[in-house]
Computed example of a mutant assay.
Amino acid sequence: MGVRVPYVETDGAKVHFTDTGGAGRVVVLGHGFFLDQEMFAAQAAGLAPEYRVISIDARGFGRTEDSGVPFSYWDLARDAWAVLDALGIERAVVGGMSQGGFIALRMALLAPPRAEGLILIGTSGDAYTAKQQKGYRQVMDAWSGSAPLEPLATTMASVMIGGTDEDRQPWLDKWLSGDRTRLALAAECLINRESITGLLGEITCPAVLVRGISDQAFTADEMVALTDGLGGPAELHTVPAATHAVNITNPDEVNELLRKFLARLD
């Protein structure tokens, strides 16, 4: 079955997603900041048709439209559950990379019986420190400003994605041709998110965590803390020669880890 690209209307958004379809266990994936659901193309190709992969564009990204009202990651978690409700799906493995992980954790907290498992790639349950907030705000101010974007975008691609020119170029093309001001509300959501570390113990479904060894967004200690804080069985894997978006640059290694995790759930 081919990938379907429908929309679901929620309170505050018209949410775009892709769906490989099929009767297999459902895996829902949320993308990282600056990216969109296309970052999971290799996972959709590698897991389907045995598994049904649904990838969602968050508000501010891809083809999802929002109403211009501020939102939180709890709102984005509700958006994701609304997509599954519209598809008649009761339970799913929920996951994501970076901000997609923020969303997945909140999905599991909002509806524990519906989360069969967690896939967390380069993410955290904590809030940013004041220093980190200042740094990210400076980046976002520059991103939405009037100075040439290419130098900043090239640096971001190197830090976030790494890998080869072939890995980075599609995202550079999107960034340089897109609306630089579109990310304002998404940036506020990212920078001002609250810590949920005190709630992690309530998440008791099995989890697999993946980190690129050179990830500059979240340290090894942060991901160990996330792994240890979860209330269910959780395993952390480190992928050599990878940065933040490890599933883009190292799809074979990540897909193998996900398949082993999903097979254990089966």
Rank of each mutant, 00 (worst) to 15 (best):
residue 93 V to E: 03
residue 152 L to M: 07
residue 183 L to W: 12
residue 153 A to G: 08
residue 54 I to Y: 05
residue 224 V to D: 12
residue 225 A to H: 01
residue 16 H to C: 09
residue 10 T to S: 14
residue 246 V to E: 00
residue 175 W to N: 07
residue 186 A to I: 00
residue 244 H to P: 10
residue 96 G to Q: 02
residue 212 G to H: 07
residue 202 E to Y: 10
residue 57 D to Y: 07
residue 141 D to L: 11
residue 162 G to F: 01
residue 263 A to F: 11
residue 146 S to R: 15
residue 190 L to G: 05
residue 55 S to V: 13
residue 18 T to L: 02
residue 253 E to K: 12
residue 262 L to I: 07
residue 22 G to N: 06
residue 60 G to R: 03
residue 227 T to E: 13
residue 7 Y to P: 01
residue 118 L to M: 08
residue 133 Q to H: 05
residue 168 R to K: 15
residue 205 C to W: 06
residue 239 V to I: 15
residue 40 F to H: 01
residue 158 S to F: 13
residue 28 V to C: 10
residue 166 E to L: 13
residue 26 V to H: 04
residue 236 L to V: 08
residue 118 L to T: 03
residue 139 V to E: 06
residue 208 V to F: 04
residue 232 G to C: 02
residue 58 A to H: 14
residue 28 V to L: 14
residue 102 F to R: 02
residue 159 V to Y: 12
residue 253 E to T: 13
residue 157 A to C: 04
residue 215 D to I: 02
residue 148 P to C: 05
residue 119 I to V: 15
residue 25 R to S: 13
residue 189 C to N: 14
residue 138 Q to N: 11
residue 123 T to N: 09
residue 146 S to A: 15
residue 217 A to Q: 12
residue 59 R to G: 00
residue 156 M to N: 07
residue 146 S to Q: 14
residue 137 R to N: 09
residue 245 A to S: 14
residue 177 S to H: 13
residue 102 F to V: 00
residue 199 L to D: 15
residue 118 L to S: 00
residue 22 G to C: 06
residue 3 V to E: 14
residue 101 G to N: 00
residue 115 A to H: 01
residue 26 V to L: 00
residue 11 D to C: 11
residue 234 A to Y: 04
residue 193 R to W: 00
residue 164 T to N: 11
residue 124 S to R: 13
residue 242 A to L: 07
residue 142 A to S: 13
residue 61 F to P: 07
residue 135 G to A: 09
residue 84 L to T: 02
residue 183 L to Y: 13
residue 122 G to M: 10
residue 263 A to N: 14
residue 95 G to E: 00
residue 74 W to S: 09
residue 200 L to A: 03
residue 118 L to G: 03
residue 86 A to E: 08
residue 164 T to S: 15
residue 145 G to F: 03
residue 58 A to Y: 10
residue 17 F to G: 05
residue 179 D to I: 04
residue 152 L to C: 05
residue 107 M to C: 12
residue 167 D to F: 01
residue 87 L to M: 11
residue 68 G to V: 01
residue 92 A to F: 02
residue 90 E to R: 14
residue 162 G to R: 07
residue 191 I to V: 15
residue 102 F to C: 02
residue 56 I to G: 06
residue 237 H to A: 14
residue 224 V to Q: 15
residue 53 V to H: 10
residue 42 A to S: 13
residue 24 G to C: 06
residue 246 V to C: 08
residue 2 G to H: 12
residue 59 R to D: 04
residue 169 Q to T: 13
residue 46 G to W: 01
residue 262 L to Y: 05
residue 147 A to N: 13
residue 229 G to T: 08
residue 251 P to I: 08
residue 59 R to W: 01
residue 91 R to G: 03
residue 122 G to P: 09
residue 53 V to P: 11
